[in-house]
Structure formats: structure tokens, C-alpha cells
Computed example of a mutant assay.
Amino acid sequence: MRVGITGGSGFLGKEISRVLKEQGHTPIIIGRRASFDTEHEYCQTDYSVESLDKVLFGFDALIHLASIRGAEGNISDFHNNEIITENIFKSCVNSRLNNIVYASTIAVYSDSNNIPWSEKHIPSPKTLYGVSKLACEHIGEIYHRRYGLNIKSLRIAQVLGEGERKGFMMNTFIDNAFKRKSLNVIGKSVAKREFVYIKDVAKAMLLAILKPEIHGTFNIGSNTAYTNLEIANIINKCFSNKGNITYNELEDEKMESSLMSSLKAYKVLGYSAEYSLEQALIEIRNQKLEVRSV
């Protein structure tokens, strides 16, 4: 299959491109900027319908990753996500391309008193990013009803992997453990969060495009959640930094629990997470060691 990937030059896009190529498919990266990547075919677009019509013709499937995370200041920070997504769906109609995967997020949920969340739970995002992603899901529903586009909206848990944007707790912990530094755990560490390894996410997207007749929303996670203190201890164990933790339980950890059920994805798409948190961290550690040895 020829598979277009919007935002394909990013963290997740690179991994799904690798997996597609490994499985004998042809990934085509779609983005705004000119690419110097000679490994994959690349198509440049400004994401207008006119531009996309020239790009999307002749594809067998499309994976839509392109998204602005924004600064959580105003909903206007995220409007481009909705405009770009509708333009993509319009162009898919024009190009008769109806096998689409949309990368949504666990952030469409929020009721921590009712976990694990299934797709039957009413979404209630608490962030503007989550609102924007949910709006794009609804746009997809409209285009499915009107034009028959089979859009698989994958609600992805927090993604874990080497190459993810720096500054978040998980990657800060990993980098500190690799350097034999202390991991600073803030708060009482009561809330538990779900993480999913990037290779499992890429596998889910591959399984989704292999089901061109399927449409709907699917939770993609690991079915396991951890407190920040548990995460710190597991990371230190995997990186041989055991016990190197500072723990300030007097501060507010400023987070709520999050956990999804991926049972529907298992039944319909055949997805289940292959990597435990420990297995993912050991692989990340080995990747870091390989880079350091070069």
C-alpha cells in the first residue's frame, strides 16, 4: 500500500514510517517544509484543499498525525488543527481515499472517578488540546456519514519513546537516570497515569489501515497505569540508578489519574500492547547507550 502520513517527519511519524516500510508498504511523508530525508518519498503542502488534492491522489490509505499542541492559552491556538483536518477530509473525498487513521488522544477523557475509560464513556476534555482533538473526531464523524470516509480515530495514551519532545516528566526522569542524577518526585504520588510505547502505537496504526472497511474510535494504550513514584522507581531500576530519588510529598502533584481500556481495539483491530513499561525503558536505555558509543 501507498500510505500518506501527515506530520510524518515528527516523533511518531518516523516510527510509523519505519514500521510501514518494514512490512512492505510505501510511506509518503506529507508536510509543510521541504524535506532532506532521502529515505522516504515526500510531498509538500500548505494543507489547503487545492494543495492536498494534488498530493493525495493515488494513495491507498492516510495516517493523519499533523497537529498543533498549542500553549493552552486560548482555543484559537488550536483552530488550525480543525481547519487542517477538515481540509484533509475534503481532499480525501475528492481523491476517493476513504481509509484514514486519525491520531486522537486520551485527553478527550477526564472523569478520574470512572476509569478505566472505554469508548462508550462520554468524552469530557479538561484541556483545550483535548477539546480540539475531540472536535476533529466529530468532523470525521460528519464526513463518514456524508461521504462514507472510514476514519479510525485512535485515542492514544501518553506516548513513551526516545525522541519525544523534552520537558515532560517521563523524559526528564529517563535523562536524569541515564546520567545517574536524582529523580525529583513532586506530590503524594497518588494519581496513576497510563503510558504506551511508541512501537505499540505504530503497530496499532498499521493494524488500523489494514482494516479499510472499519470506522470508529479506538483506545490505544497499555491497560496499565502508574504513580509518579512507581515510574521513578521502575526507571531507576532499568537504568541502574536505584534509590536515587528525592520525594517531596508536601507539594500538589497537579495531576489526576488516567487509564483507558483497549478491549475494543483488541476485538476489532487485533491490537494489544506488546511492551510493558519495563521492556520499553530497557529498549530506550539501549538506544541511548548505542548513541553514546558512536
Rank of each mutant, 00 (worst) to 15 (best):
T172Q: 10
C136M: 07
S189K: 06
K181A: 06
N150Y: 08
N171T: 11
I198H: 02
L206N: 02
K203V: 00
G187V: 06
K203A: 07
K211V: 09
S153D: 13
E137M: 13
G148Q: 11
I139N: 00
F168K: 11
D200K: 04
N184M: 05
V185C: 01
V185S: 00
A208E: 07
K188C: 05
S153L: 00
R145D: 07
L183F: 02
R180S: 15
I156T: 08
K152E: 08
E137H: 07
H144M: 12
A202H: 04
M205K: 13
F195S: 05
S153A: 13
V190M: 12
L206A: 06
I156G: 09
E164S: 14
E164H: 10
L207A: 02
A191M: 10
N171G: 03
R165T: 11
I174W: 04
R193A: 01
H138R: 15
C136V: 10
A204Y: 04
N184C: 14
N150D: 15
C136R: 01
R145W: 12
G148H: 10
G163D: 11
F168A: 11
N150I: 09
E137G: 02
M205V: 00
L183S: 05
L160E: 05
E213I: 00
I142K: 13
H144D: 08
S182P: 09
Y147I: 07
K188L: 11
F178Q: 09
G161M: 03
M170S: 06
H138V: 14
A157D: 09
V190C: 05
I174D: 02
K192H: 12
Y143H: 13
I151S: 08
A191S: 15
E213C: 03
R180E: 08
K179R: 07
V201T: 07
L160F: 14
N176I: 00
F178A: 02
K188P: 13
K188T: 13
V159T: 05
C136N: 12
N171H: 01
E164V: 14
E194N: 06
R180L: 06
E213W: 04
G167L: 06
I198Q: 00
P212V: 12
I186V: 13
L160V: 11
A157R: 09
I174F: 03
T172I: 11
S153C: 09
E213R: 04
K199S: 04
I214K: 13
L210S: 05
E162D: 15
K152R: 05
G161Q: 04
K199E: 13
Y197W: 01
I198A: 01
K179T: 08
K181C: 10
H144K: 11
F168R: 13
V196T: 01
K152A: 03
A177M: 04
V159Y: 03
G140C: 12
R146F: 15
E141T: 07
I214N: 08
Y143N: 15
L210Q: 14
R145G: 08
I151T: 14
I174C: 05
K188H: 13
D175K: 12
E141K: 12
I142N: 15
